[in-house]
Nucleic acid binder design. Structure first.
Length: 1017
RNA sequence: GGCCGAGUGGCGGAAUGGCAGACGCACGGGACUUAAAAUCCCGAGAGGGGUCACCCUCGUGUGGGUUCGAGUCCCACCUCGGCUACCA
């Protein structure tokens, strides 16, 4: 909305209005700079409302701190009321401080926590810091300030801001992931994973009574196959290492040669360049730590069902896990000397799965029913079979392609996605169902990391295969007939009936899949197979400011790593970061910690083995994976959490945070939780029972006009109206829309230039805004994401400075539904600020020098109507909080105030109840009013008001009367009128009688307490 | 391309299948004031009629459907937003 040219800031003398004078330009800062002009006025008399957040808020924050009001009690306030664990996603304490998105979720959880306390529940509501991470390290490289210093300074600022907002956290439980005591247990959990393997066969029953297959178990219980045992101790060690939940493997990292450093994925732009400097980034394989999250894929998927999470988040997680059911099929690689029949016979005798040494290409497909249409095969460039099958003529071309593929950046990949590339290997395989000789290609559209790294290509029924086949002129055989005869089978990727498929012709797709999978299995050529998109979790980073791994690498005599590692002794945890002055990249892909002092890096074990520390560090996810556990028992020196406390508090009853964590954080946490459960350290199966995502807060809407480019020829437009609008290059806002970040004219598709306007350039006509010099042009307003570059970032400090914390809290809850994206509006903040002023004046005496109770508030009994309003409000607010529908709860309180503030006298009891309802939303003001109402302790644990249905009920109600579904009249009837009475009363109404006259009543619908509807002809 | 979500006044948004637009912003009018601010009161979906304490028509992205009755349920389409991207 435009900020009209008008005045908003007043000057006045009295001290309690000084805050408005201190920063008269504040509105200029808070509102879009361009759209406001100030007219400043002076007065010698105070006319400002006396509701003085600047006095009230610090007073009560100090009171709460002094009395440890929010320290988690040992017991529920009311016996049997139960516990409630209310958790926020803890923030990364950035140098910028809080943005307005933080208080949104935090206010919601604070309301729930305060409300639950008043209901007598035992509430755990903690806060902490996810404090490892890149920015502090980069700041250190730039300035030389140690990341620890920056981090703890930022934490202090965040804590100050959160306390300024009056959140009821139990600060005695505060933890930071960077605390040594916390790091110790993060490392300890890693060691538990390191000391475990996943037994896929293990059958057991979960705490929910459901049967499960597959469980994490101690590595000592891993059965060692006899042939491995026979190979000796090293082979056994290697076998164990290969099965651990935390294991090492070669994995590609983003190496930027120009910057001489490894980059995190977040530091690489979508087009494969470094965010800093825009240099090319290549992928280089390095030894990395991985966590075997894939072994938990099935459980992470199936146990989602019982969680009270938004369906969208569940669906994101399901997609991310990406389970698909299909078949693995063996294609025999053709020996040029054998005919295909012979090959098939030989294959049939060897059985599935293929044995080592078989020259077999195994593919994974979700559409085994299209086997007859497989006209070629593709393997990933890295596929190991390539070396053994490539023919002499093709060797060079294949080698070249593999080289190129290996060095491809993300940019090349996405670019090449548009055009398929590949090279023929010269080799052929035999299609197991029809004996057809099928050429084998390599192409980078097949990924080594999914399925078997090889596919059978069915160009007729797969988009990618079709594109590839068309590029390289490969045969296309349709094998699925769409149900609709008119549809071309080529390019048809859905289910239909089989054609060109031998004896299977006419079989519907679903049935065919099952049948052919079974038939292949019988012949030993295939079997049903399940695949997951989910990959193992790359758990190491080449960073300083993260948890060091509690791992030693073993070195040989020459000081080179042997590849074997050993865990740091538990008693030596935590492994703390060495003090280093220089965090700058060393120009090699080695992590910064490899430049740590020697005494940190090296050691000789008791058995004489030389050891070197693991120099990779853990990702930021590590600390955030389990912080919800530590909050239950933050000071425990003997365990990461006391089992009794875990049993009592877990799972988290309400978890609120941004949707950006819908997949990774929540999936990783669930994985760790399940692994720790399997190992007997936890008793709950899932960490977060109920999850809510708060919506994003956009910047304030700005006025925008639209212009077409000057070179466009307006005369081409045939439409006369259009021509008028285009004249002078302006178009109507109604004719403009944004496509991929660009403004386009809907009617012509022309690219537009969007122009932000100032209020001075705009006129209001009726309800629309128009350009002053071009009144026919309608002006639009739009909200965008807050960003520094746009200059539309709202700083909570400044809002609190002008309007107070209660107003900020209340506004953020009043904006709209919690889960919805919604734009900021500073005048909306003023709206709730005015509401708080009205609340103040309803209960407090605004004319008194000292805060005292309003003389109109008296110890009188409430009238029936007053009781009705009060109890209706209690009911509505209570139910709305239960639904997390805070915006409507606030509306209800506004209605209450609108109703009561004009009344004299106002019953004190009703004012007290209202104050309690307000308390979770605007706790400072509520505490102050509670005191004025004659109470001398905090209202934090005062019982929540109860409502009485009988007081809400009215004896007479108004209901609508419809004729043929159209509203024709409203009548007053007794609340308990039955159907017949309602009909009679409705028919007796003058207007209705007129409507019914001479008509034939076909049917009458009367819903008691609701409405009457006559159907006439 | 795929998946998920959403379209209601000038704006943010309310509405167990039952009076569309609660509450708030912005806007207009009035009271108070030398004036302004602050505060309080009143008005308002759009269009039309009028015997101004009243009535009619249209109205929740578009087109169909179910129903006595649809913002709400079903089908198709359009637009916007978010996430994801060759997963065979």
């Amino acid at each position: 909305m435009p900020q009209q040219v008008s005045s908003r800031v007043a000057f006045s003398e009295p001290a309690h209005t000084l805050r408005r004078i201190e920063k008269p330009s504040l509105h200029g800062k808070l509102l879009p700079k361009s759209s406001v002009t100030f007219l400043l006025f002076r007065t010698t008399e105070s006319t400002m409302p006396r509701y003085d957040a600047k006095r009230i808020e610090p007073k009560w924050q100090a009171f709460w701190a002094e009395h440890d009001t929010f320290a988690t009690p040992d017991q529920p306030q009311q016996p049997g009321a139960g516990k409630l664990y209310v958790l926020d996603m803890f923030p990364y304490p950035s140098a910028n401080g809080l943005h307005v998105g933080h208080p949104e979720g935090y206010t919601a959880t604070d309301i729930v926590s305060r409300y639950a306390r008043m209901q007598g529940k035992h509430v755990l509501h903690p806060m902490g810091w996810d404090a490892f991470g890149l920015p502090a390290e980069q700041h250190a490289i730039k300035t030389g300030t140690h990341p620890r210093e920056t981090t703890y300074a930022n934490i202090d600022n965040f804590r100050r801001q959160l306390q300024m907002l009056g959140f009821s956290y139990d600060w005695s439980r505060e933890v930071s992931t960077t605390d040594e005591d916390y790091v110790r247990w993060t490392q300890w959990i890693f060691l538990q994973l390191f000391d475990s393997w996943f037994d896929p066969e293990f059958e057991w029953t979960g705490p929910d009574g459901k049967k499960r297959t597959g469980k994490g178990r101690p590595i000592s219980e891993l059965p060692i196959p006899a042939e491995v045992e026979a190979e000796g101790a090293e082979a056994v060690r290697r076998f164990r290492d290969e099965h651990r939940l935390a294991y090492q493997s070669e994995a590609p990292v983003n190496w930027c040669p120009e910057l001489g450093t490894v980059l995190a994925n977040e530091e690489v732009t979508a087009d494969g360049k470094s965010e800093r400097g825009n240099f090319p980034v290549e992928r280089r394989k390095l030894r990395q730590w991985m966590l075997r999250i894939t072994s938990y894929a099935e459980r992470l998927l199936s146990e989602l069902d019982d969680l009270d999470w938004p369906e969208s988040v569940k669906s994101l997680q399901r997609n991310w896990i990406g389970k698909s059911v299909g078949a693995e099929v063996d294609f025999f690689v053709l020996d040029p000397n054998q005919s295909s029949d012979e090959a098939r016979k030989q294959r049939a005798s060897t059985g599935f799965p293929a044995k080592p040494g078989d020259d077999v290409l195994r593919v994974y497909t979700t559409r085994p029913d299209t086997l007859y249409g497989a006209t070629y095969m593709v393997v990933a460039p890295e596929h190991p079979i390539v070396d053994s099958i490539v023919t002499a003529e093709q060797k060079d071309a294949v080698e070249q392609y593999r080289q190129k593929a290996a060095h491809k950046t993300d940019l090349d990949r996405t670019d090449l996605a548009k055009e398929k590339t590949g090279v023929f290997t010269g080799a052929y395989a035999i299609n197991p169902v029809n004996g057809e000789k099928t050429p084998i290609w390599i192409a980078d559209y097949v990924l080594m990391s999914y399925g078997t790294g090889a596919i059978m290509a069915v160009p007729a029924h797969d988009e990618r295969d079709l594109e590839f086949a068309q590029t390289f002129d490969l045969p296309i055989i349709p094998v699925v007939q769409p149900g609709d005869e008119k549809t071309d089978p080529i390019g048809f990727t859905e289910h239909g009936t089989a054609i060109n498929s031998g004896d299977y012709n006419g079989t519907p797709t679903a049935e065919f899949k099952k049948k052919i999978t079974a038939d292949l299995a019988k012949q030993g050529l295939g079997r049903e197979a399940v695949n997951f998109r989910l990959r193992d979790w790359l758990f190491s980073r080449q960073r300083y400011w993260g948890e060091p791994f509690p791992i030693w690498q073993e070195l040989d005599e020459a000081g080179n790593p042997t590849g074997f590692v050993r865990a740091v002794d538990e008693a030596e945890l935590p492994v703390t970061l060495p003090d280093m002055d220089d965090f700058a990249p060393k120009g090699t892909p080695e992590p910064p910690l490899s430049a740590a002092p020697e005494e940190w890096l090296y050691r000789t074990a008791e058995d004489g083995t030389k050891l070197r520390r693991e120099t990779n560090s853990m990702p930021q996810w590590a600390g955030s994976c389990w912080y919800y556990l530590r909050f239950c028992d933050p000071k425990n020196g003997d365990a990461f959490i006391d089992p009794e406390k875990e049993k009592y508090w877990l799972p988290v009853d309400l978890y609120i945070g941004g949707a950006e964590h819908a997949v990774l954080h929540l999936l990783y946490s669930r994985f760790w939780h399940k692994a720790m459960f399997d190992l007997g350290h936890l008793q709950s199966a899932e960490p977060f029972q109920k999850l809510v995502n708060q919506g994003m807060i956009l910047g304030e809407a700005e006025l925008t006009g639209y212009r077409i480019p000057p070179d466009m020829d307006v005369s081409e437009q045939t439409d006369e109206m259009m021509a008028t609008e285009l004249q002078g290059n302006w178009v109507s806002a109604r004719d403009a829309h944004e496509v991929d970040g660009e403004w386009k004219q809907k009617s012509t598709g022309a690219t537009l230039e969007a122009v932000a306007l100032t209020a001075e350039q705009v006129d209001k006509k009726g309800n629309e805004f128009h350009l002053k010099d071009r009144p026919e042009i309608v002006v639009d307003s739009r909200a965008h994401k807050m960003s520094k570059s746009r200059g539309n970032v709202i700083n909570p400090d400044e809002v609190v400075d002008v309007y107070g914390a209660d107003a900020l809290r209340l506004y953020e809850m009043f904006m709209g539904p919690l889960e919805q994206t919604k734009p900021w509006s500073m005048s909306g903040v003023e709206g709730v600020f005015r509401f708080l002023g009205r609340v103040w004046r309803m209960i407090a005496d605004d004319n008194a020098e000292e805060p005292v109770i309003n003389p109109d508030v008296q110890d009188v009994a409430a009238t029936e109507e007053q009781d009705r309003v009060l109890h209706r409000t209690i009911k509505a607010v209570t139910e709305d909080i239960d639904k997390l529908s805070f915006n409507t709860a606030i509306s209800r309180m506004m209605e209450f105030v609108n109703e009561f503030s004009g009344q004299k006298p106002r019953p004190k009891a009703a004012m007290s109840d209202f104050t309690l309802l307000l308390a979770p939303f605007a706790p400072h003001l509520a505490e102050e009013l509670w005191q004025l109402l004659g109470n001398d302790d905090t209202l934090t644990y005062t019982p929540w008001p109860k409502f009485d249905e009988s007081k809400i009920a009215e004896s007479e109600i108004e209901i609508p009367v419809q004729v043929n579904g159209k509203l024709r009249a409203k009548i007053r009837i007794p609340a308990d009128a039955d159907r017949q009475q309602m009909q009679d009363l409705a028919a007796a109404d003058e207007t209705i009688a007129g409507q019914l006259e001479g008509k034939n009543i076909v049917k009458t619908i009367a819903v008691p307490g609701k409405l009457v509807n006559f159907v006439v002809k």
